[in-house]
Design a protein around this nucleic acid. Structure first.
Lengths: 209, 209
DNA sequence: GCCTGTGAAGACGTTCACAGCA
DNA sequence: TGCTGTGAACGTCTTCACAGGC
C-alpha cells in the first residue's frame, strides 16, 4: 500500500473496473488478466495494474486476478460495502426517472426523501412510494431521514440555494444534474452530471473531425 | 490560431464557459475579464486564456472579453451554430425524461425519432408527440429522420447492439446513458453519462476523506 | 512461461510570470 | 494602468520496460 496521492481518474476507473468485473463474474469468469480487463474497459493494461497498486497487491504473478476477490476489494475501496442514503431535490421528469432508476438501488444507493417547491406535488407520492416534501422542510426532513448524498435535479437557478442549505446541515456529497457550476467551500464535494457538456463535446468532434 | 493538439478538457471547459456567458449576457454583462469568468467557472484565469488561444484572439488587452461576442465565437467553435438531430433509443423513465428535458432543445438539440423494443410502446407517442418506432426499423427510420447523434438509454445489455447498428449506418456520435463501456472502432465517438460512476466517486471521497 | 508490480521515462495539461498592447 | 496572449516551468498522469515471483 502506497501513501502517494491518488489520481482522481483512478477512482473513476475503479468504478468502471467494478462494473466490468460484475459482468464477468456474472458470466462465470474466475480469473482475469490485466490485459483482458483493460480491453474491456478501454484502457492500458499497465494503467490497471498501477491503479490497483495504489491500494494493495490483489493479483497473482503469472496468473492474473481472481475476479470475485478483486471485485470485492474494489467495492471496499470505493465504499460500496454499505448502503448510501440519497435525497432527491426536484421531482420533475428527470428527478422521477432517477428515483425509479434501477441501477441506483442495485449498487446500494437508496432514495430516502424527495423534495419539490410545487405545492401541487407536495404531499403526493412518487411511483416508488416516496413522499414528496416541500423544500422548506429540507433541514428537518433531511436530518430525520439521514440523507448522506443530495441529488439535485432542480432548474439551474435553484441549485446553488439547495447546495448551500445542504452544506449547512453537514451534507458532504452532491450529485448535481442542473447545468450550473455550483460554488462550494470546505468539505462539500460536488459531482456534476452534465448532459449538455457531453453533447457539446460530440457536436465539436462531429464538426471538427 | 494554433494548430497544436487541443486537450479534451479544453472542449469541456469551453462548454462551461458558454453556459456561464449565456447567464452573464442574460444578466446584462457586456465585458468580462478572464479572472471573473474563471471564478464563476471554478478554474484558473490563465486556463481560460490558454483555452481560447487555441482558437484565436478574442479579447482586448487592458479590457477583457466582450461577453456576447465571446459567446458567439465559442458556440461557433463547438458547432452550436446549427441544429442537431437526435434519436432516442429506449423510452423508459430516463429516455422519456430526456426527450422532455428543456435544456436539450434550448441548445439546439432536437429529438427527431424514438425507438423501443416493447410492442406495447411501439406506435404510441411520447408526451412531446414523438412517435415510438420499433427498434427493428432503426436503420430505415434513422436515415429517414436524418439522425446525427444517437442517445442510448436502453438496459446495459442492449447498448452495444444499438451502437453497432448506428455505426453501420454512418452515425458518428453517441451519448450513452447505459452503464456499460461500449466498444467502438473507427470514426464513432461515444460520450458516457454515468451516474453510478459519479456516485461511486462521491462514495469514495465520503469514505476516505 | 507468464502475468503482476513498479521505478523510470515520457506525454500531457496546468500554472506562472511577464511581454505586448489597448 | 489593466488585462490579454504566450513561452517556459511545473506538476500530474500515463505508458514503457523489466524485475519479481508463481
Amino acid at each position: 500500500m502506497k501513501f502517494s496521492k491518488i489520481p482522481a481518474a483512478t477512482i473513476t476507473r475503479l468504478s468502471i473496473y467494478s462494473r466490468t468485473l460484475e459482468q464477468l463474474t456474472g458470466e462465470g469468469s474466475t480469473v482475469i488478466s490485466s490485459e483482458k480487463l483493460a480491453t474491456m474497459c478501454g484502457v492500458n493494461p499497465a494503467q490497471i495494474r498501477k491503479d490497483l497498486a495504489y491500494f494493495g497487491e490483489f493479483g497473482v504473478r503469472g496468473v492474473g486476478y481472481y475476479a470475485k476477490e478483486l471485485l470485492f476489494e474494489i467495492k471496499k475501496i470505493l465504499g460500496l460495502n454499505k448502503t448510501w442514503k440519497l435525497g432527491i431535490f426536484g421531482t420533475g421528469n428527470l428527478g422521477c426517472a432517477l428515483v425509479a432508476h434501477e441501477n441506483f438501488a442495485k449498487q446500494g444507493y437508496h432514495f430516502v426523501a424527495a423534495f419539490d417547491v410545487d405545492p401541487g406535488k407536495v404531499g403526493h407520492k412518487l411511483a416508488s412510494g416516496l413522499l414528496i416534501h416541500h423544500v422548506n422542510e429540507l433541514e428537518e426532513v433531511a436530518r430525520g431521514a439521514g440523507i448522506e448524498i443530495g441529488v439535485i435535479s432542480t432548474p439551474p437557478s435553484a441549485a446553488q440555494g439547495i447546495a448551500n442549505r445542504l452544506a449547512t446541515i453537514g451534507i458532504r456529497g452532491i450529485l448535481n444534474f442542473a447545468p450550473v457550476q455550483i460554488q462550494v467551500e470546505g468539505g462539500l464535494r460536488v459531482e456534476n452530471v452534465d448532459f449538455t457538456v457531453k453533447l457539446d463535446n460530440l457536436a465539436y468532434h462531429l464538426t471538427t473531425p
